[in-house]
């Protein structure tokens, strides 16, 4: 995934749509948009930085998981098998991107009231286990099965990318030099978060 910080306006649509479509459990942090104001000479600059699971090439969460509930697909997406997770929290303290959360209570976002979508999120199999962004892997998988291309065809692309109103998010195959994401990385100055930890995150941020 490539996130163009020059385009992101911090509307939070990606965050909301992620919660809605993926039925992310209440209190989970599958996706968040950080809003920061920084001083640059005599003026202030406001930056919005969407953060989700970085789907690292060398994910620290993968090796620590005692039940092997955390797995890495061939295409690099890191997922969790809900039915194997014991909710020990080891992956939570292993992830330097704070991308993993365990929900212990079946409480909804708006106190006791549930919005139209939330009954679907109230699945008991999501309580007491770790959840995180999975790059909408069921959606990507279904799209691939239909012969669609992730990143190009909306049906095979994560919903946050599809719904971004500023077109700041791009998704695709980093191993394909002709993909949109590879082209963006080649042509722009990009950074990755916490690179010094050697996790090799798969989310790139275009800066300046």
């Amino acid at each position: 995934m490539v996130i163009d910080l020059r385009k992101c306006i911090g509307c939070g649509t990606c965050q909301s749509v992620c919660w809605q479509i993926n039925n992310a459990p209440p209190g989970s942090l599958w996706r968040r948009v950080v809003d920061r104001e920084i001083r640059e000479y005599s003026w202030f600059l406001r930056v919005f930085v969407p953060i989700n699971c970085m789907h690292c090439s060398r994910p620290p969460c993968l090796k620590v998981c005692p039940t092997a509930a955390t797995y890495q697909r061939v295409d690099g997406i890191v997922g969790i098998k809900d039915e194997l997770c014991v909710g020990c929290g080891y992956c939570v303290v292993a992830c330097p991107y704070l991308a993993r959360t365990i929900t212990f209570q079946d409480k909804m976002r708006f106190e006791s009231k549930r919005d139209l979508q939330e009954p679907a999120a109230s699945k008991s199999d999501r309580i007491g286990v770790c959840t995180k962004c999975n790059f909408c892997s069921p959606r990507v998988e279904a799209g691939l099965a239909k012969g669609l291309i992730p990143g190009s065809d909306p049906e095979a692309t994560p919903v946050c990318v599809n719904f971004c109103i500023a077109n700041a998010l791009s998704f695709g195959d980093l191993d394909d030099p002709e993909s949109e994401v590879s082209r963006l990385i080649r042509k722009n100055k990009t950074v990755r978060l916490q690179e010094e930890l050697g996790t090799e995150p798969s989310v790139y941020y275009i800066v300046d």
Binding site: P66, T67, C85, V86
Partner: peptide, 16 residues
């Protein structure tokens, strides 16, 4: 969160 699944804790001895 799910202590009843404790039997799965032996699944990743190679790495975890």
């Amino acid at each position: 969160g799910r202590p009843s699944r404790g039997r799965h804790l032996f699944r990743h001895v190679r790495h975890s």
